[in-house]
Design a protein around this nucleic acid. Sequence first.
DNA 1: CGACTCGATGGTATCGATACCATCGCTTGC
DNA 2: GCAAGCGATGGTATCGATACCATCGAGTCG
Lengths: 334, 334
Amino acid sequence: MGETRKWVTMGDVAARAGVGKITVSRALRTPSKVSPATLEKVRAAVAELGYVLDETAGALSSQRSRIVGALVSTLEDSVFASTVRGLTEGLSEGGLQLLLSATQYDPETEAALIPTILGRRPEALVLTSADHTPAARDMLNRAGIPVLELWELPDHPVHTAVGFSNRAAGAAITRHLVETGRRNIVFLKVDRTHDARGALRMAGFLNESAGLPGSQTHHVPEAPGATAPDYGAQGLREILERLPETDAVICTSDIIASGVLCEAQRMGLEVPGRLAIAGFGDFDISGDSGLALTTLKIDGYAIGRRAAELILAPGAMEPLRIDMGFTLVRRATT
Amino acid sequence: MGETRKWVTMGDVAARAGVGKITVSRALRTPSKVSPATLEKVRAAVAELGYVLDETAGALSSQRSRIVGALVSTLEDSVFASTVRGLTEGLSEGGLQLLLSATQYDPETEAALIPTILGRRPEALVLTSADHTPAARDMLNRAGIPVLELWELPDHPVHTAVGFSNRAAGAAITRHLVETGRRNIVFLKVDRTHDARGALRMAGFLNESAGLPGSQTHHVPEAPGATAPDYGAQGLREILERLPETDAVICTSDIIASGVLCEAQRMGLEVPGRLAIAGFGDFDISGDSGLALTTLKIDGYAIGRRAAELILAPGAMEPLRIDMGFTLVRRATT
DNA sequence: CGACTCGATGGTATCGATACCATCGCTTGC
DNA sequence: GCAAGCGATGGTATCGATACCATCGAGTCG
């Protein structure tokens, strides 16, 4: 490194180019408002000095942070990661950057993170959950910026929602199993304290399977250190012990389903002959080259992209409720 | 929406609490420097007005953005996501936030993103790649902040590196296969333009397998729309056609390995009897409850955490080169 | 008892870019 | 030929919090 170099300022660039500061600002922000000759001089000075516009100062004077905050439940799940990519790509077209944090599925953590994000004066706030503490809800309401809840369609969104009906999703996968002849379907659920989406899908299952006495839910307690496939494998063993008639298992994620599928193979159960397995999310490994898992596909990228569009649109403060739907992908496990 | 509400400022809070602005600032930033009684008054005023500190102004006046920039190759890969979590958690203990973007493994994209991040005047910059364009390298050098390259240990790091030797990793997995009796080992590589880590692991493989005439590399071209398991499945078919003697396949990720494993099962190949399969990354699905894949485990979370520690440490400007190592996890596929 | 220390608090300048308004020079139209 | 119009450019105030220094009062020590 060497000396602790101070940042070059716009004034330095202006002096170097022989123009006023404001012209440098215009050259960088709105090049069309500067004559080609001046633009060239400024660009040369910028390049020589290695100047980079200071957004911290720009944000203050223009009262526009050019930042959008995002609170995702977790990044270690490719579905949300796709949403983040969609958001980032979409927002970058409008010159906005994403300030990201993860709540680890905990509303209290979310509530603690909201002020730290709001402190950056974001122009919008995106959340991948609709489960907020009262304090969080209050902060979101007072923030005075568009708030977008993704991956759900809550009855009472804070502001705008872009997602799909988890209840309908749970019903759809159940219907598919019923239509393919299954009668003793078990919905495998990991009991997390905060899993509103999983609970809604389970509700959809319960509603759809109401007439099937052999269909039930099975709960696996959350355990520290356990991975999603562990829950699947353990769940399957318990299910077959408790409900040996079971002919189909619905999981709340493909990763859990991978545990069910691999355990079934180890037990010598024929899939889908003896047991059908359905997942959720359509991850890479679920494709035909991999586990060939029947699953519900949600286009997380599209959700993020759509959210970005809404933020950049002129009437972003208008509340909306957008259903992005889902797709049933039938593969070899049903 | 309603009226375009202006943000409450520190002055409003000060007036409400009957103290000076600066006291409000201290109450929020360094509560220990304010008397308990005053602190209480300020806190009450803050709560009543719903005030949130404006970091955009704070950053300018204190010349500290409290932001760390991060450029990851992709978020849609749980290994980097873990690193991001480790970073976020570690940095939050020092009051720093992460400004994140994804380069999609493209150095040109990286070079384009660097100025946008530098514009926020971050206090450090983290990269999950050591493959930079000359222009990018130049910007990083001039930035005057700590630059951390993760997941690699380049010969000439820009500044600080926290990672492991990909070459040694490739050698280690090869050695394991040789020690377990394999002689015709194929290293399956997806030919991405920018995959320095994969190339290094392949180099480690080539070095270690030099004395084995039956050992080779097999390249699969990158194809738009293809998923990682597709590469694995396709690769295995091509390998068995071209090199029928093959008794082991090394993949550059567990997801690719999942394609190889599932394809092998479909072809009726006994694993690991007829064919051994090794992956890379130790994803959730690779565990004993899932695919039970032999793999190299890298603790991405620890890498992120360590990087955060280095950034927060007093001598953060001292270049370092930290080897976090890796672990061979032997499971059912070798 | 006075000088001194220390904790608590406030006033003012400042960070760097941008908004707003003014200015300047050149073209255009009558 | 002159006023109006317009593109290009600059000066100055401003955004909101914090650094720095000053102040003030209460204790402490010799």
